[in-house]
Design a protein around this nucleic acid. Structure first.
Lengths: 199, 199
DNA sequence: GTCTATAAGAGGATAGAC
DNA sequence: GTCTATCCTCTTATAGAC
């Protein structure tokens, strides 16, 4: 099929997103120029504007896509009614999903402040939906008399912070396998919720 | 005492640090210009260079001061040999120290990547010293047969991430008191470590 | 779809007057 | 210690050729 010289829309678009992601994660949104992104992609700065209205759009797309992915992936899971099984499932899912997307996790936390107000509200809303997932698991576990914690909301925050923090230090090519990591965090969360016994 | 007109070194210095801190936390290091800092302080941009060699120095001073403060404060504490008491003490100390310094906590995590390599190493080293404190408490608790976790290092990361994450949502003027917060996290950490019973 | 050129301004940092 | 003025580079975004 005929195509104009220098036309690469199927490649350039994703490449711009990927490059922006890496650079934002490495240097921060404000520190990365459109020229820098373009140069890494191998095009001129002007060409980027065929794929995004502006720099803000680039950031929003990354964060929105990430949260959509996260929520969609969770809703594809088949989750047990048993609180302990559901908790284990959530821990494993959260670690799996986040460990293989360290850059997205990083900027989703880091660059929230660089979203314009409208975009910020959208992302915060999706984030709230995700927090509700674990909160509801905990709430059910408490009312079933299985989990022994007072406040499901605070406990949700504690678990999410603890799990997401793994991204800061865990390396897939290190001595600790992802399987062992998940086992360890599964035990920690179970114990945190007052459940004893092996995972 | 006589003083030149327009000379305010005792005020301007601290004011620059404080303003830089607030602006870095709010907008990010790269997004804040020396002109913006100066304008907030009420001086011209050139005047800032009487207090810092460059913008990097401003960031490093904030992060270094924070870590020094943290370590010094801990070493002023009188810590029990009893692992459970020491753990509770650490949880309370960490929450107290971090809750009243949200901006410093934020940039100490966020702006690490904007430190030049030498400065980065220095801060990371201090951070490692702090992590060792809780790691040693856990290690002792395990060998005393009181804490039931496998890996003290991973558990340290989990606890620090969980506690520091509080800064993202806790507000001193909210319905939850700092006392109740500390109680709650004290129970969560105890349970996480396999210790049962009330805090 | 990508390029070059350009508009219009903001950036860090310094020099020298006061 | 602070000011003004300045250097020189980099910034986002657009216009129009190809």
């Amino acid at each position: 099929m005929a195509r104009k010289t220098g036309s690469h829309s199927e490649i350039t678009g994703p490449k711009i997103k990927q490059t922006a992601l890496e650079l934002f994660a490495r240097y921060g949104f404000a520190a990365v120029s459109m020229r820098k992104i373009a140069s890494e992609v191998g095009v001129q700065a002007g060409a980027i504007y065929n794929y995004t209205p502006d720099k803000q759009g680039l950031l929003f797309d990354l964060l929105y896509g990430h949260m959509e992915d996260l929520l969609t992936s969770w809703h594809l899971q088949n989750v047990s009614q048993d609180p302990i099984a559901a908790l284990d499932h959530f821990v494993g899912f959260h670690l799996d999903f986040h460990i293989c997307r360290p850059d997205l996790v990083f900027i989703s936390y880091m660059e929230l402040r660089n979203l314009n107000p409208n975009n910020f509200i959208i992302i915060e809303d999706l984030r709230g939906n995700y927090e509700n997932i674990i909160c509801e698991i905990i709430t059910k576990g408490i009312s079933d008399g299985i989990f022994k914690v007072k406040d499901p909301k605070i406990t949700s925050f504690a678990i999410i912070a603890m799990l997401t923090g793994v991204v800061d230090w865990f390396r897939s090519d290190g001595v600790l396998t992802e399987y062992d990591l998940k086992q360890h965090y599964s035990i920690l969360t179970r114990q945190m919720l007052g459940v004893n016994g092996p995972a």
